[in-house]
Design a protein around this nucleic acid. Sequence first.
DNA 1: AATGAATGAGCTTTCATTCAT
DNA 2: CATGAATGAAAGCTCATTCAT
Lengths: 201, 201, 201, 201
Amino acid sequence: MAEVKSLAQLPQIGELDDSPRGRVMRAAAYLFRKNGYASTTVRELAQLVGIQSGSLFHHFKSKDDILLGVMEEAIRYNTLRLEQAVQQATGTQQQIRALIRAELESINGDTGVAMAVLVFEWDALSPERQNYLLNMRKHYEQIWLNVLERAREENLIIHPPFIWRRLIGGAISWTVTWYKPEGSMTLDQLADTIMQMGKAK
Amino acid sequence: MAEVKSLAQLPQIGELDDSPRGRVMRAAAYLFRKNGYASTTVRELAQLVGIQSGSLFHHFKSKDDILLGVMEEAIRYNTLRLEQAVQQATGTQQQIRALIRAELESINGDTGVAMAVLVFEWDALSPERQNYLLNMRKHYEQIWLNVLERAREENLIIHPPFIWRRLIGGAISWTVTWYKPEGSMTLDQLADTIMQMGKAK
Amino acid sequence: MAEVKSLAQLPQIGELDDSPRGRVMRAAAYLFRKNGYASTTVRELAQLVGIQSGSLFHHFKSKDDILLGVMEEAIRYNTLRLEQAVQQATGTQQQIRALIRAELESINGDTGVAMAVLVFEWDALSPERQNYLLNMRKHYEQIWLNVLERAREENLIIHPPFIWRRLIGGAISWTVTWYKPEGSMTLDQLADTIMQMGKAK
Amino acid sequence: MAEVKSLAQLPQIGELDDSPRGRVMRAAAYLFRKNGYASTTVRELAQLVGIQSGSLFHHFKSKDDILLGVMEEAIRYNTLRLEQAVQQATGTQQQIRALIRAELESINGDTGVAMAVLVFEWDALSPERQNYLLNMRKHYEQIWLNVLERAREENLIIHPPFIWRRLIGGAISWTVTWYKPEGSMTLDQLADTIMQMGKAK
DNA sequence: AATGAATGAGCTTTCATTCAT
DNA sequence: CATGAATGAAAGCTCATTCAT
C-alpha cells in the first residue's frame, strides 16, 4: 500500500459525497485500515483531510463516532449493492454468482478499505455499537440466505445454507489479504472459481 | 469470551512452558486478542501475569517484542503441527484432509488466540518484522503447496494450487469469526465439509 | 438550586432591561454562580440565552467582559439601593437598620446571584479590572462608613467603624451560604438579629 | 498575594508531611486559591511541586482527587484543632472564646489557603463528594453547637445557637477577605471583638 | 445583527519505558 | 530479578474567538 499524502488520491467510498463528513470518513477508512483504529491519531486524520484537529469534532462527536460512521456506511452501501445484484440476476444460480461478484467488489473495490475496517476493527467498538451494526448486518446476511435457501431446495448446493455461507464468505473476505486487481486474475474469474467450489458435485 | 482474571484460566499456547516469558506471552495473546494490541496496556498485561509493569521489561525489551514473540510462537508451533499432519497421513487426499483439520485446530483450538493476533494485529508490526514473519510463514505455506502440487497432478483439484490454497485458507481462517466448539458441529465435520468444497467435481 | 432551562425562569437583576446585553448578563450571572466562571462555556451561555455562541461576541467583546458586566451591574444597582436606604431612614440607628436590610436584600434577593458572582469569581478578573471595581466598591463602602462614623460619635457602636463594618458585613454576606427565603425566618427578623449583635452593650 | 515560585515558600497545611502527596496538596491549595480550581492547570501545579505533570497521577487519580484531598485535610485538621480548643478551655464563656480564636487561626493561619479553597471551590466538587465532605463538616459544626447550646442555657447568648453560629461564623469566615496578620490588629484582639458582638447584652 | 464552521492553543490524562533501590 | 516512582511525549477532546456568508 503506497503512502497516501492527499485526500484526492483516496477513492470515494460508495456514494459518500464531498461534504466535510464524507471527506473525514474517506480519510479515516484509509488510516484506520493502514495503521489500525487505536494507532491512528486524530491529528493525523485531520492533516490528511486538510483541517485542524479540533475541527474534526464539529463533524463527529468523537473518534469513536468516526469509526462507527465508516462502518455504517460500508454496510449501508454494500447492502444496497447486494440487493441490486439479486434483482438484476435471473435464476438462482445466476443470483449466487451475482452475490459472489458483488461481495468481491465490496471487498476489493472502492469500499474495500471500509470493509476491511469493519472486519479488523470490530473489537474497537463498544458492545452497544457492535449490536447496532450487527442488526444492520443481519439484513445483509438475510439477502444471501434467502437466495441460498432456494438454492438448497433446487439442489444447487448440498450443505446447509448457513455453513455454506460462512465458508464461502470466508473465502471471499480473505481475498482482502492477497488479491491484487493489477494481477493476472480478474474479479470475474475469481468469482467463477469460488462459484465452482460452492456448487454441488 | 468470558472475562479472564487469572493466568491459570488461560490455556497453554502450543508448548509454551511456564517460564516468565511463557506466562507473559500467554497473557499477552489473550489480551491482544480481546482488546487489540494498541489498546492493551503493559500495566494490564503485568497485572494479569501477576507482576509489576516494570518487571515485564526484564523479559522483553519492549511491548513490540511481546507481540512479535506471540506471533512467532504461533507460527512456529503450528508449522510443527502441520508437518506432523502431513507425515502421519498417507495418500494425497488424506494429507489434504489432515492439513485442513490441523489448521482448523490451530485456529479454533488452544493456539486460536495467538493465531487471531497474528491475523488481526499484523499491521501493528513494523515492516521489518512483518518481513521476518513472512519468511517463517513461507515455510508454513510451502507445506501446503507441496501437497497441493501433487494433488493437482493427481487431478484431485482443478484449480491452481495457489488460488485453491488462498480460497480454502480463507474459509478456514474465517471460522475464527463464527465457529463455536460447543455448537452442534465438530471440527471433523467442518473439515469434511471444507474438503468437499475443495475437491474437483 | 433547581435546574434552569429557559431565560424566562431567571429573575431580573436589578433593573437590567430586556435588551440582548441584559439577557446575556442575566443568564451569565446564573451560570457563573452555578458552575463557576471558568467552567461555564460560552456555548452553554448562548444556549440559555437562545442564540448561537458566535452571536455573543456582537454584544460583548469577550467572555471576560461579560463577567465584568455582571459584577459592574451588581455594584451599580446595589449602590443605588444603599443610597436610597439611607435617604429614606431617619436617625442613625434607623439608617444602620436600613443598610443591613438593604444589603441582605442585595444578597438574598433578585441580585443575589450577581452578588455571589462578585464574591466567588473575584479572582477570575484581571488585576486591572479588580482595581476598577474596587473603586466602585469604595463608593459603596463609603455610604456605610459615613453612617457608621456618626454612629460611633453617638456611641451607638463601640468598635472602630472599619472593623465593625467588616464583621457585620461578613455576617451578612455569609447568609448567601445558608439563608433560605422559604424558611421560618424573614429577612426583617434576620436584620433585627444582626442589628442587635452590632449594637453597643 | 505575592507570586510564589517555589514550594519551600509555602506554609505547611496543618500537619501534612513532606511526602509527594503532601507536597502536591500544599502547592494545590495555594494555586487553587490564587487562580481558582478550574483555572489551575495540572502542568502549573506539577511545576510548582517540581515534578512532571504525568507524575501527579501517581499520587492522585485525577485533578478532582487533589481538590478533594485538600478540602478533606482542611476539615480534618481543623476539626482536631477545634476539639483541642474546647478541651483546653474551662467554662462555657472561655470555650466560646477559644472556638472563635481557633477558627480565626484556621482561616488566617497556616490552613487559611486550604480553608479558602474549601469555601470558594465548593461548587467544583461533584454532588457525591460535596455530600461526603458535608458529613465531615457536620462533626465540626457539632462541636460548636454543643458549646452554644450550653451557652444558651446559661443565658450567655440570646439568639438560637444555629442562627448565632451562622452569623458569627460569617463574620469569622469573612476575615479571609480583609484581615492582614501584619496589620495593627492581632487575632486575639479580633477574637475579643467578635466575642463581644456575640454576647447577650 | 446573526450564524455556525473553523481555528489552534491548551486542557487532563494515559502510557511505554527507565532506573535507583 | 523485581519493584514502583518518575518520566515526558503524545493522546483525545474542549473551547473562546474569528469571520465569510
